[in-house]
Design a protein around this nucleic acid. Structure first.
Lengths: 332, 332
DNA sequence: CATGAAATTGGTAGCGCTGCCAAAAAAATC
DNA sequence: GATTTTTTTGGCAGCGCTACCAATTTCATG
């Protein structure tokens, strides 16, 4: 088997080598249309011999519709997005689609620029996080004619398709759970809510339910920057310094909550007797801590899977609510 | 159900609308070649008016060399790879390159299939993890003529370029550190080493140094499946059940080590007096635990950045060793 | 003004493939 | 064996853009 270095073999060369026409090679390779077994063998032998690799750029240009799926995600540091990508890429690979991605850093303007760059690749679909986009992004996506999937949120109007769960409801249920357990002096530790609008929706649902039960949020500590274990720890420390008599704290997610948990471990604050901790996401690590973290488990991988499934099946516009699960754990 | 694709605006239509030739529009849009300010304004106005989005598929086919960079990575669950992607995607975006990815699940055969699929997009470069590839993968990559970057390992011969650090040296230094601290009864808890060959190299370097100091590995517990906090916890439990008199345990990475740490917290095993714990990766969470984790911090994001930089600058073949940093922490 | 140099511009041949159509070959039917 | 039907095949026009080259305009300069 010879491979020519750097000289790209074209379909025409394969056709010559196999002694057949170009379209025949194309049909064999795509297993589309009809051809005899003998022809197929001859073509495949030539492909093998020449080390031919089809050029999908050319193929996509010639045919209608690409097999590229574009992901425009806020971050790769927040485990949520790798999880979504993981779910989606498995489905996409099975269906011979190719995933392309860009990271917006939670910046709507950057999202617009990156979405535009993505559309230049004429993807079959664009997958985004949530419903909050600039006017320009919306207009561009609409005009593109490609499928759009907004992921990880269902609290709003979908441009085309949406897959996820209600962040607002997650916030409400978290509050209801804490109230049922008898906590009344409840605080919040979160990260930048303007950027992470889904965290903002959870917080707003949380406060709504607290308010409805005459137990308004006692105090809050919002840290600038991304969510992290360290920020969670720091946030709880500051919150307790200001408002020591809290009996429960809701965190913007499990990373932050783990930081809070570690703070309590380090300071000898007994959980949940002295202070209850509640998170969001249902990370694996939260189940392996000495006391399993009380949290809400979200279908992150499934969100990616379903989103990809909708795209590969070219499903009609729809919103899929995958729900979430409250994990009682031992910290609340 | 049928979905109409909107009629996409082409460069030719923009040219007509602006009253100029196609090549002029192309030059203006790419800011390449010369054109007058007046022409540029006319073209940009037409682009704006028609909502033209260039078709990069066509552009790539017509020109030589694409601006796609293909990542073929083992996993998205192991934070290492999102971190690498994060570093790389920032650099690539700045340089108007587009990242494409596939996930191999640590399966070399799947890596070969996915690499082949990637090459069909004629990427500027293919970025892989480590040096262990099938013969077919190597042959194909060599023949492709595109740049190749092997990441996260420098213990071997690079196909073209490599960026990372020595896993073997990391293992050796970890062992040396534990020996310096006086630990002699040392165990190991790891995950599937056949698949994660870099973890295998660390382990082998670790054992080598132990052996050289007459303190051979006392016992080991290898868990099937991927690394996880839960597996680390389980692994340490099993290891200690079998060999209770260990004074230190080396884990295949920080996830596993955290599991071990939590096991000790839950069982009241005092760290590091009764048992020392040493990890690998330098995750943020390991710095926020009540006792900071003793571990080796690896330049994951930088690996991605440098790898991307090499590609966008079309650097000559080379191996870049970014090194690593031993963090003493408080668990060993 | 003339003349050559420099800056702009447009025309057009591909890039490598797919989709359509007609031609050829093979199989089925009378 | 002639005819019809079915299966296989090849030719070729694009897909939308870029690269190259030649044509045109503008600018300097004597």
């Amino acid at each position: 088997m010879e491979f020519k270095h750097q000289a790209t073999v074209t379909l025409a060369e394969v056709a010559d080598a196999a002694g057949v026409g170009e379209s025949t090679v194309s049909r064999v390779l795509r297993n589309h249309g009809s051809f005899s077994g003998k022809t197929r063998d001859r073509v495949m032998a030539a492909v093998e011999r020449l080390g031919y690799v089809p050029n999908r750029i050319a193929g996509t240009l010639a045919s209608t519709g690409s097999r590229l799926v574009a992901f425009v995600i806020p971050s790769l540091s927040n485990i949520v997005f790798p999880d979504v990508l993981r779910g989606a890429s498995a489905i996409l690979e099975e269906n011979r689609y190719q995933a392309v991605f860009s990271v917006t850093d939670y910046d709507p303007e950057k999202e617009e620029a990156l979405a535009a760059a993505m559309l230049a690749w004429r993807p079959a679909a664009v997958m985004l996080a949530g419903y909050e986009h600039t006017e320009g992004t919306v207009k561009m996506l609409r005009a593109s004619g490609c499928r759009i999937v907004e992921m990880l949120d269902v609290d709003g109007d979908a441009l085309d398709m949406a897959v996820g769960f209600s962040n607002r409801a997650a916030g409400r249920e978290s509050a209801a759970f804490l109230l049922r357990r008898g906590y009344r002096r409840i605080g919040y530790v979160g990260h930048d809510l303007n950027r992470d609008t889904r965290a903002g929706k959870r917080f707003s649902g949380f406060c709504e339910t607290l308010g409805a039960h005459d137990a308004p949020l006692a105090d809050r500590e919002i840290l600038a920057g991304a969510s992290s274990v360290e920020n969670g720890r720091l946030g709880l420390e500051r919150l307790l310094a200001r408002t020591p008599d809290l009996d429960a704290v809701y965190f913007s997610n499990d990373d932050m909550a783990l930081g809070g948990y570690f703070h309590c471990l380090a300071r000898g604050i007994s959980i949940p007797a002295q202070l209850a901790i509640f998170g969001y996401n249902g990370l694996d690590i939260g189940r392996a801590t000495p006391q399993p973290l009380s949290t809400i488990r979200t279908p992150r991988v499934a969100t990616g899977q379903v989103a990809a499934q909708l795209v590969v099946t070219n499903a009609p516009p729809q919103v899929v609510d995958l729900g979430f699960e409250l994990i009682e754990g031992a910290t609340a």
